[in-house]
Each structure stands twice: as structure tokens, then as C-alpha cells.
Computed example of a mutant assay.
Amino acid sequence: MKGDTPARKRPTRADVAKLAGVSVATVSFALNHDPRISPPTTQRVVEAASQLGYRPNTLAKSLQSGITHTLGLVMPDISNPYFGALAEQLEQVAIERGCTLLVNLSHGDPGLERTRIDELLNRQVDAIFISSAQSDSELEKLSRTGHHIVLLDRCQPVGGLRSVSSDLHQAAYDATMHLFEHGRRTIALLAGSDNPADMRTVGWRDACRNAGVPAGPLVSSGFTAQDGYLSTLNMLDETQNHIDAIFASSDLVCVGALRAVRERGLRVPDDIAMISLDGTFITEYTDPPMTVIRQDTAAIAHHAVAAALDADAPLTQIIDTTLILRRSCGCPNL
């Protein structure tokens, strides 16, 4: 159309070579910092590329090498402080390893999770981290595809997939035993999962058994604050408040449970002591401040990226947790 401005032609390596006075091959070597190219020549090529606004075609390069330097992440909910902290740490470590992280949400839906995985595979990512809502049998099918998959928050390997997780069994065991040390005897578990083999549930049961005390109520609460709130209200009504401690499977669940306890006219820790698993920043600002088992998201991210990129990484990495004492469990003067 008359008066239209023609589209600006994208600069090529040949354009850079012409401006810098070198060959096209020298441009490629210089932009990849090949030591065979002298520093003055490299500088001249870099300046010419900058002047022209030239950017290498990373897609073409990736197709040639089979490496895209991108990693995918599929997790249930970025608004959960634990997942937000973990995503941030994964991105930081990925950047340090020269990679870009693509974040996708499954909202805890196994079908949507599979869709997100397929989308990332179509993007030719080098590896995918998954905090999975799928069953072990479904994940075993995924392991047979030959793609680089790293499972997060899975203490046991599934098929040939690598996994990185906090020691969830020990975390639950330590939290429960600490509550027993405070003289509590009916310790409820707000378990996000309804899987009896979940390591948080197993650790809680093992602590009860070793203490010689019957396990308290087990509630499959989900992982949101609203889940924790509603589940705790129902539990308190059904047990007629005959519990004296709660171990919550996540910080958000614990925040919801704390509100429910107060609405029933009960005091923390006087009537009901509480400990949460995750140890995110929100537990520092509850009233009272929450005793937590803190997951080391920095260490999880470091080992997860290593599992994705390093051929010699172990099949399973279990990361230690830390008990952080505050007032909600009944510890004095904290």
C-alpha cells in the first residue's frame, strides 16, 4: 500500500561479517567466544553485531545440537508460598547453569498435568521438573518415554525417573515426637494427600507407634488454607475437641487450621499445640508464631537441576529438614 513503511530486514551473520570485515565463519566463532579468534577480532564482531541489532538464531542452533538450554517446571499452585519459593530457587539455579525455566501450573489435576508435560515436550525442553498429582503407575508410563523427568517431593524413585525430595518421613516423625515431648497425647494429622503410603502419613504413624500412643485423627485436608480451615472445623466437631495437638502437612493448611481452632474458642498452644511442615515466611507472622519443619528449597533446587543436567547425578536425593521452634508447639520464651 502506498505510504506503508517496508518491514525492516532482520540482520544476518553475513551483514555482521561485511561490517566487521571478516568471514561469516569468523562471526560464528567470535560470537561463541572461540579461543581461535583473537580478542581484537572478537571485539570487532561483537560491536558490529550490536550496531546492527543482530541476534543469533538460537532455535536453529538448538535444532543442530539437540540442546535448547530450557527446563520445564510443572507444579500445582504458584500461590502456595512453598511452591513459590521452590520455583524461585529453581529459576536461580537454572540461570546459573545457563538455562531458562518455563513454569506451568497443573492445579493438582492429573489430566491437566499431563497436558502441561506434553506442551513442554513439544517445546523441546531439555528436562522437566514435576511436583506430580499423578499416580505411580501413570508416572511409570512417563518414565518409559525416555524423556528427562525429575520428580519433586517424591521420596521413592518411580520407574527410572530421578527424584529429589525433603525427608518427609523424618520431618513428620520429628514433628510428632516433639509434640509428644510436650505431653500431648492425641495428635491429629492434617494430611494433604489421601494416600496412606505418603511419607508424611507414615512418619506420623511411626512416631505414634514408637511413643506407644494410638494415632490421632487422620484428615485428608488438601493443601490450601481453606482446606485446612474447613477440615479442622469438621474434625473438632466430630471429636468434640478431644485433641490436643495438630501436625499440618503444609503452612497454608496450618494457617487455616489456626483460624478454625480460634473460632471454636480454643487457644494455641494451651489447648491445642500446632506444628506445620514447609517453614515458609508466613509462619513467622501468625499469632502465635508457628513452629515448623522447614524444607530447604535452595538445596532441593540445587540437587534437582543437577539431576536434570548431570549424567552422574544419583537416582534419588533426600534432603534433610530442620525443626524451627516457636511458640505454637508450647515451647516457652520463644
Rank of each mutant, 00 (worst) to 15 (best):
M1T: 14
A7E: 14
A7P: 10
K9S: 11
R10H: 05
D15Y: 04
V16D: 03
V16R: 05
A20D: 06
G21C: 10
V22I: 12
L31T: 12
D34G: 08
D34I: 11
R36K: 15
S38G: 07
P39H: 07
P39S: 06
T42I: 11
V46Y: 02
Q51F: 07
Q51P: 02
Q51G: 10
R55S: 10
N57Y: 08
L59G: 10
A60M: 11
K61M: 15
S65W: 09
G66Y: 01
T68M: 09
L71P: 01
P76E: 05
I78R: 01
Y82I: 10
F83C: 08
A87G: 09
L90E: 01
Q92T: 15
E96V: 12
R97V: 10
T100N: 13
T100F: 11
L102N: 09
L102T: 11
N104Q: 15
G108D: 08
P110L: 06
G111N: 14
T115R: 15
R116P: 02
R123F: 11
Q124T: 12
Q124S: 15
F129R: 02
S135R: 15
E140P: 06
K141A: 14
L142K: 03
R144P: 01
T145V: 10
T145Y: 04
V150K: 00
V164K: 00
S165G: 03
L168V: 10
D174Y: 07
H178K: 14
E181M: 12
E181P: 05
H182R: 15
T186F: 02
A188I: 00
G192E: 03
D194E: 12
D194N: 12
D194W: 06
D198V: 12
W204Q: 01
P217A: 08
P217E: 06
A225F: 07
Q226R: 15
L230A: 13
S231I: 02
T232F: 00
A248H: 04
A248T: 04
D251P: 07
D251Y: 03
L252Y: 03
L252K: 06
G256V: 03
R259Q: 14
A260Y: 04
R262W: 15
E263L: 10
V268A: 09
V268K: 01
V268F: 02
P269K: 06
I275W: 07
D278Q: 10
F281E: 14
I282W: 06
T283H: 04
D287Y: 12
P288W: 01
T297Q: 01
H303N: 08
D310K: 11
D312G: 05
D312M: 07
L315R: 14
L315D: 06
I318C: 02
I318P: 00
I319S: 00
T321S: 08
